[in-house]
Design a binder for these strands. Structure first.
Length: 434
DNA sequence: TCTGGGGTCCTAGGACCC
DNA sequence: TCTGGGGTCCTAGGACCC
C-alpha cells in the first residue's frame, strides 16, 4: 500500500522575505504582484487580520495602520529557496514529486515510524533552509493534502499529521468542508451542496456512479482517493511542458499600437527563452490582449489568435514575428489595453525537430514536400500526416510509442500508425535525395 | 494611476471523411 | 440528389491547481 507525504512551506513568499529580513518576523505581511498591483501572498498573521489578496492601492492606508509589512515579489530568490528545499527533501524519500514552488509529494512507502520521520523533515528544513513547513501523511495524495491542512490548524499536531487510522480519517473528513478538498473548486462545491454533499466525508460516501454521471472522471477519482484508494500516482521528474506563456499586466494602460507591439515582442522573447531553457521547440504561437475589466465605464475588448507554424522553431525572432502577425489581426484602435500574453504551444523536444517533415524554408522544397504528403495521405489514409500544430506533437508521440513498442510488448494500432509515419519520413528523405 | 502569472485536464460539439 | 451511420480530429469552453 502506498504512503504519501505532502510537505509545503507555510506562507512561502512571506517566509522567504522574513528570511531575508528577520526584523519582519512576528509582523503581519503581504507580498505584492508585478507592478505592486495587488497582494499575491500573505502570512498567517495577515490572514488573521482578515487581509485578502486585495489591490494594494485600495488598502495601503489600512495596512499601514495595522502595521502590515509589504514587499515587492522577488521571484529569483523564491526559486533559489525552492531548489534548496527540494534538495533537502530528496534525502528523505526515494522519490519526490515537486508539485509547485512550495510543495512536494514524497513516497514514504515502507518508512517504519512515519510520525518521527515527518517531524524530522520539518525540523531539518527549519534548520537548513530557515523555512517553516507542514507535513501531512496518508494513503493517497488527496488525503495527504487534508492531513497537511489539519496538521497546520491543530495546536497539538504542531504542523505534522499522520492520517492513517480509519477512525481519525472519519473525524478529519467530517471536519473538512467539501470545498477544501483538493480538486474541488468553488463551482463544483456549489453543485455538490445541491446534491446534499457538504463535507469531505459526504463526498467520500457519495455514490461514485452518480458523481461520474453528473460531474466527471476527475471528481470520481477524488471520491476514490478519499476512500483511501490511490488513483493519483507520484509523478517523479518534471513533465514536459505542453505550453509556455508569458502573461503580464502592462505597467500602465496602453493605447499606442507601437507600444503594444513592443510589449508583445518582449513577452514573445521571454516565452521563447523559457522554452529553450527547457530544451523545447514550439509548433504554434498564440497571442491575446485585453482591456481592464475593472474599469466599468470604459469600452471593453479582448481577443486572441493562434497561428500554427509550418515547422517547429526555437528561433526567438521568428516567434516574435509570428506573435506580431497575430497582434496585427486582433488589434483594434480606440481601446486602452491592460494586459497581453504570448503563448508558445504544441511543444516538442528541440532534439526531435527533424520530425517536422516540413522543416524547409525553401518554398519550392516545401511545396514538393506537401505534394509528397498529399500522395502519401491518399495512400495511407487521410490524417496520416498533418502540418498543423497538433500534428507535430502527435507525430512525435507516435514515434515515442513506436520506440517503446520495439523494446517491449504492446504493439497495436499505434504501432501501425507509427509505421506509417516512419515510412513517410523515409519517403521524404528519398524525395530530398532526389 | 493602481486589481497575479502561470499551468493542466476533460468534454461537448462541429467539421470532415468514408 | 438525398439519406444515414460511424469514425476521427480539432477547438472552445469550463473546471481545476498553485
Amino acid at each position: 500500500m502506498p504512503v504519501f507525504g505532502l510537505v509545503d512551506v507555510n506562507s512561502f513568499f512571506c517566509s522567504c522575505e522574513e528570511l531575508l529580513n528577520p526584523k519582519l518576523k512576528g509582523r503581519p505581511g503581504v507580498v505584492l504582484s508585478n507592478n505592486d498591483g495587488m497582494a499575491v501572498a500573505r502570512n498567517k498573521l495577515a490572514k488573521a487580520l482578515g487581509i485578502g489578496l486585495d489591490p494594494f492601492h485600495l488598502n495601503k492606508k489600512r495596512w499601514d495602520e495595522l502595521g502590515v509589512y509589504y514587499r515587492s515579489s522577488n521571484y529569483p530568490f523564491y526559486n533559489e529557496m525552492t531548489g534548496r528545499v527540494m534538495a533537502v527533501l530528496e534525502n528523505y524519500a526515494p522519490k519526490i514529486e515537486v508539485y509547485s514552488c512550495d510543495e512536494a509529494f514524497l513516497d514514504l512507502n515502507g518508512i517504519p515510524n512515519l510520525d518521527a520521520h515527518a517531524r524530522e523533515i520539518k525540523q531539518v528544513l527549519l534548520q537548513y533552509c530557515g523555512l517553516p513547513v507542514g507535513v501531512g501523511v496518508a494513503r493517497t495524495k488527496t488525503l495527504a493534502k487534508i492531513a497537511n491542512k489539519l496538521g497546520k490548524a491543530s495546536k497539538k499536531a504542531q504542523g505534522v499529521l499522520v492520517l492513517t487510522d480509519p477512525k481519525w480519517i472519519d473525524i478529519a473528513l467530517e471536519r473538512t468542508d467539501v470545498e477544501d478538498v483538493w480538486g474541488v473548486g468553488r463551482r463544483w462545491a456549489e453543485k455538490l451542496r445541491g446534491c446534499r454533499i457538504h463535507t469531505a466525508k459526504d463526498l467520500r460516501d457519495a455514490d461514485e456512479k452518480m458523481i461520474l454521471k453528473r460531474f466527471n472522471v476527475v471528481l470520481t477519482r477524488t471520491v476514490l482517493e478519499l476512500r483511501g484508494i490511490s488513483c493519483l500516482p507520484l509523478l517523479s521528474g518534471p513533465p514536459m511542458s505542453k505550453s509556455i506563456r508569458s502573461s503580464l499586466s502592462f505597467g500602465h494602460l496602453i493605447e499606442d499600437y507601437d507600444e503594444l507591439r513592443q510589449a508583445i515582442s518582449a513577452y514573445a522573447a521571454h516565452s521563447a527563452h523559457k522554452m529553450r531553457m527547457e530544451g523545447l521547440a514550439c509548433t504554434s504561437v498564440a497571442v491575446g490582449i485585453e482591456t481592464n475589466p475593472f474599469l466599468r465605464d470604459e469600452p471593453q475588448y479582448f481577443n486572441g489568435m493562434k497561428l500554427p507554424l509550418l515547422c517547429p522553431t526555437i528561433d526567438t525572432s521568428e516567434i516574435i514575428k509570428i506573435a506580431v502577425l497575430c497582434l496585427e489581426q486582433i488589434y483594434r484602435e480606440g481601446y486602452r489595453y491592460k494586459r497581453g500574453d504570448v503563448m508558445v504551444d504544441g511543444l516538442i523536444p528541440a532534439s526531435e525537430m527533424q520530425w517536422s517533415l516540413l522543416d524547409s524554408h525553401d518554398p519550392l522544397e516545401t511545396e514538393s514536400l506537401m505534394a509528397v504528403m498529399d500522395v502519401l495521405n491518399a495512400r495511407y489514409g487521410p490524417g496520416t500526416l498533418r502540418y498543423g500544430a497538433e500534428g507535430f506533437r502527435k507525430a512525435w508521440k507516435m514515434r515515442q510509442n513506436y520506440l517503446s513498442s520495439v523494446t517491449g510488448p504492446g504493439i497495436g494500432s499505434e504501432y501501425q500508425q507509427t509505421k506509417k509515419i516512419v515510412e513517410l519520413g523515409t519517403a521524404v528523405q528519398l524525395v530530398r535525395a532526389l
